[in-house]
Design a protein around this nucleic acid. Sequence first.
RNA 1: GGCCCGGUGGUCAAAGGGUUAAGACACCGCCCUUUCACGGCGGUAGUACGAGUUCGAAUCUCGUCCGGGUCACCA
Length: 502
Amino acid sequence: MKNDVVRTRFAPSPTGFMHIGNLRTALYAFLIAKSSKNGKFILRIEDTDQNRKVEGAVDLIFKTLKKAGINYDEGPDVGGNFGPYIQSMRLEKYFPYALELIKKNKAYYCFCEQKKESSAETEVVFSNYNRRCRNLSKEQIKNLLSSKIPYCIRQKMPLSGSTTFDDVVFGTICVDNKELEDQILIKSDGYPTYNFANVIDDHEMKITHVVRGSEYLTSTPKYNLLYEFFEWEIPIYIHTGLILGKNKDGIISKLSKRHGATSFEDLESLGYLPEVIVNYIALLGWCPGNNCEIFSLKQLIDVFSIGNLNRSPSIFDYDKLNWFNFEYLKNKSDEDFIKTCISQFKKVFPENFEYFKKDKKTLSQNSEILVKILKPRLITLVQIPKILNFLKFAPEEYDISLFENKKSKSNINSSIEMLTIAIDEIENLQMNDWSLENIKNCLINLAKKLEIKNGTLMWPIRISLSAVEVTPGGAPEIITLLGKDESLKRMKNALDVLKNKV
RNA sequence: GGCCCGGUGGUCAAAGGGUUAAGACACCGCCCUUUCACGGCGGUAGUACGAGUUCGAAUCUCGUCCGGGUCACCA
């Protein structure tokens, strides 16, 4: 084993969404493979539950992993030497193994009916805990088989003793065999259970490191027993702490819908960047040796080590995720920033809004302003329409009290005075002087000339343009973005309203 | 409830017998400032509890308490 190439796998079942706990497991498995020499990362689809088929779910898995940058060396859509990589396509492989176990007296046919839910009667009669099919005679089995009674195949657990296994993260774990149920290997529909197919496929695909969430810790002895029965080499187990969520009552449990978004897709639709999601979840249960927090996937491969994996469960924290998204957005080049936001901008600006100059590479003046006002405050992409909404619609009415502001020494009368002068000043600006710099200088010089605080002049202008207390950017930025006509229109309108009030 | 695992500030976490117990997010304050932010500086807050081992314990042992996971013909 030591000289072998590391082979890890991610084995999701196609549920129609990618739970971030699963995604993190995929990430860790990927990192373990990729941070080793020539390591291979494999994708295998575990779709042995016929009743839970979801249309398009497999494609979603491909798509999500691609977006996250978690590329696999072998998988359904990329091929490999150990295929097929979809369990429903390898059905014929499992049954012979089950028969082998029956021959070795490590498994048995079970003819009990499926346990019905909450029916006291069936509980008693058919509960598998009495293991009534465990010791049927050959004659009985033969008869039952020929009478076509549906059956499943169960693993025959030792009734005494204990099973011990080693986990890289959790250490040595020992469970009494009497705790282990005679779990089903082959269902009555002929499909293998996850518990069985998983072990078979991991062996056939030569998986060296099994990476999964710690919810599998208690069932690992059962898998270990299977490996022993087959006399196969047991893989290295790496169980990771769970991701938990905290709901409003403060109750903590496995991250689920009631905590808000739980899937990669949910998070993305909330405006979080794929690379942010990856970066954040990497740090939920794993820590680099140093104080760095921002990691690209490539950097993660470089610094990842199994030893820094954490046992204890961690709670998913939106505050921290927000910070990551903010940082990533802020650190983008201006051009990338605009490109990333463009689908949101389209909800605010008209079709012909120009984001780039004619060379299609250099940002337009308006884009430069958007970068300037959005970068320092944008947390998620979906905030954009709301933040920029005031640009789209001219104010229909004003809350007069907004013009009063102590800190900038602004009140109704000063606002009337300032707007009157400012309108005059802006009107005299030539259109070829229409740049943020010129407009800003114009206003600041005006304030200087009047011997007043910048705020006394800027405050009423900004309010007249937006009619809201808080805006991204100040008066000069908003004027530049709105253009001369629209700005003057809004300022004049506000001036009229104010005069009528006095 | 049985079994398994975990427990460092509100959250993520470093420290694996010796440090004033790092750092980040969040929160609070101050500065900057044309609003809100950004940025800069500073602050509040933690080893669940009790024994034991040791010159010395967040770190090792035991007990208690708390939290989570698991007990399907789901994966």
